[in-house]
Design a protein around this nucleic acid. Structure first.
Lengths: 150, 150
DNA sequence: ATAAACCTTGGAGCATGCTCCAAAGTCAAG
DNA sequence: CTTGACTTTGGAGCATGCTCCAAGGTTTAT
């Protein structure tokens, strides 16, 4: 009594989600996912929806979210009103952070495109003005409030 | 004989770069930055350009670059032909990764905006279709090549 | 009924990137 | 010339997110 189209073992889930078995078990330990059942012998069995859940987690990880932040968003997925405390603030802050990151990445992309165009001539690379000055306040993280100069 | 407008101590540099002294020393240990001089008593003294260098590093860190990747880009800054080996490939790959990340973040932003509009009514949140289905192939990391299903 | 392929738990180990500390020396202001 | 703020080195410790392993049980194909 085991794997069927709607009961994946951890290995099958790993293959479909492109995460390792170990990572899936690790995510279980920290509370991000649980098998929907166990076989008689104790094997974890997952519903097919677990594949989407893990891809959601993987995507957010690749975008720089911590497992803790992902857990908060999964609180919505799980309709867990408890984990949704202050979720509004969280979402607003995250959206703002994502917007800032998009802006910065866009400027970084331009720098990289500039560098790319100068390759493969190292001399030309060295002449890149942004790199040369290492200063472009439109791109770089700035001081923001709180900075005091002596 | 010490701090002047063009000879910052580590504390002043930390304040201006918004990194801690400890972090700056750590970056020195791993080769990202070096003081341009030392005082008689052994204090690190930095040229003002160090502020930009550290802001460059901080920005790239915040965008998800590893210290190792940052070191490669600093190889260009330092006109170090040695560290520039294969830099063209590196830049191309990075530019592509940055582009992909911008795309994904843009879609994520849309999800977050949707969720934000549904706040603060938890019921409405739970009704978010993307969250509900946890599937949006336009946004989610996908399988790509290499995935085999049994 | 046996082998190959899979799974279990528990715990150790590791890479990255900091962060903190103690004991001691340096510096600038009054 | 003392005091208090600052700095030094070296090393330990820590948070995150995996990753690997051993010893053993389960499944399934033959």
């Amino acid at each position: 009594m085991n794997e069927t189209p709607d009961r994946l073992t951890i290995g099958a889930l790993a293959a479909q989600s492109r995460l390792s078995r170990e990572t899936i078990r690790y995510y279980e330990r920290v509370g991000l996912i649980r098998p929907s059942a166990r076989s008689e012998g104790g094997y974890r069995l997952y519903a097919p929806g677990a594949v989407d859940r893990l891809r959601f987690i993987r995507t957010l990880r690749e975008l720089g979210f911590t497992l803790n932040e992902i857990d908060r968003l999964l609180g919505i997925v799980d309709r867990d009103a408890g984990r949704c405390a202050d979720i509004g603030d969280f979402i607003r802050d995250k959206r703002a952070a994502v917007e800032r990151q998009i802006e910065r990445l866009t400027r970084l992309k331009e720098l990289l495109l500039d560098l790319e165009a100068r390759c493969p001539h190292v001399e030309a690379l060295f002449a890149c003005p942004i790199i040369d000055r290492l200063a472009d306040e439109r791109w770089m993280a700035d001081a923001e409030e709180g900075e005091r100069r002596d």
